[in-house]
Design a protein around this nucleic acid. Structure first.
Lengths: 142, 142
DNA sequence: GCAGATCCTTCAACTCTCGAAGCATAAGAT
DNA sequence: ATCTTATGCTTCGAGAGTTGAAGGATCTGC
C-alpha cells in the first residue's frame, strides 16, 4: 500500500519533471534566436501584458528566486529594451515591471513558438484542461 | 478556436512549470541537510538502483545537459562518496555510474522526503496515475 | 589497418544564484 | 511627532552551474 502510493507519486513527479524539461529544451533554439536565456525568458513569460504590472517581489515569487537574483534578471531585460522598471506610486519602496512595446512583441512571438514546440502541445485541448485541473488542484498558485 | 487552444496550452504549461518548481522548492531544506544541491540531487535521483548502471551519456540525456556539465556534477557526487565511476567493460570509452552503499541510502532518504513534500503528494493515487498517463502520452521518455 | 564516429574530459568563459550588508520607504508603537 | 521595526529593493562578493571548443581514448565500418 504505502509502497504502491510512493511509486505512483514517484512516477508523477518524474513525468512532471520530464514534461517541463522537454518544454524548456524544445524552446532553446527559439530563445537563442531572440537573444534570450531560459532565465530571462521565464521572467518575460511571467509578465502578463493584460494584468497590472507586477512588483519585483511578486515576480521573485513567480520565478521562485530571491530578490537579488531578480534584480539581476530584471537588469538583463531592461538592457535588452524589453521591460521598464518604475517606482510604484502607492509604495515608493516597490518597483513595478512593465513590458515595453517591443517587449510585448517579443514575448508574444517567443511564447507562442515555445508553447507550440512543447510536448504538451501534442495533447488535445481536453487533455490539456484535464492536466491543468489536476495540477492546480495540487497547489495554491495560478 | 485557435485562441482557445492556445490558452489551454498556456495554462497547462504554466501549471506544469509551477508544479515542478514547487516540488524543487519544497525539497530545498531536505537537500541542504544532506549537503546536496538541486543539480547533484537530480543526478542522484535519476540513477535507479534497481536498474543496470547508466552511462554518462544516458545520464546527460536524463538531466538534459551536455557531457561536460555532467562530468562536473558527477565529480561532485564522487567527492561526496555517493557514486562511483567505472569503465564499461563492453565499451571502454564509456563510463558507468553506480551508487555506493551510502549513495543508495542517501538517495532513498532524500527522494522519499522530497516526494512527500511535493505538492503532487496532495493528489490521490488515482489522480497521480492519471497525471502520469497524461504526461507520458505527450512525450517519448519514461 | 585507416578514417571517421563516439564517449568522455579538460579548460576558459560565461550565466545564474545566493547571502550579507545597506539604503530608502512604510507601518506601527509610544 | 518620533522612534522602532518591518518591508522592498539594490549592491557586492563568492560560488554553483552551464556551455562550446579542443583533445585523448576507444570503437566501427570500410
Amino acid at each position: 500500500m504505502e509502497c504502491m502510493t510512493a511509486r505512483e507519486l514517484a512516477a508523477a513527479v518524474a513525468a512532471t519533471y520530464h514534461a517541463w524539461m522537454q518544454t524548456v529544451e524544445a524552446a532553446r533554439s527559439t530563445l537563442a534566436e531572440h537573444d534570450l536565456t531560459a532565465a530571462t525568458f521565464q521572467a518575460l513569460w511571467l509578465i502578463d501584458p493584460g494584468a497590472p504590472p507586477p512588483s519585483m517581489k511578486v515576480m521573485a515569487e513567480r520565478l521562485y528566486c530571491n530578490a537579488s537574483n531578480l534584480t539581476f534578471i530584471t537588469n538583463q531585460l531592461i538592457e535588452r529594451g524589453l521591460i521598464e522598471r518604475t517606482v510604484d506610486p502607492h509604495d515608493r519602496r516597490s518597483r513595478v515591471l512593465t513590458l515595453t512595446v517591443r517587449g510585448r512583441q517579443v514575448r508574444e512571438q517567443v511564447t507562442q513558438a515555445a508553447m507550440a514546440q512543447s510536448p504538451l502541445a501534442m495533447l488535445t485541448s481536453a487533455q490539456q484542461q484535464q492536466l491543468t485541473a489536476l495540477l492546480t488542484s495540487a497547489f495554491g498558485r495560478t
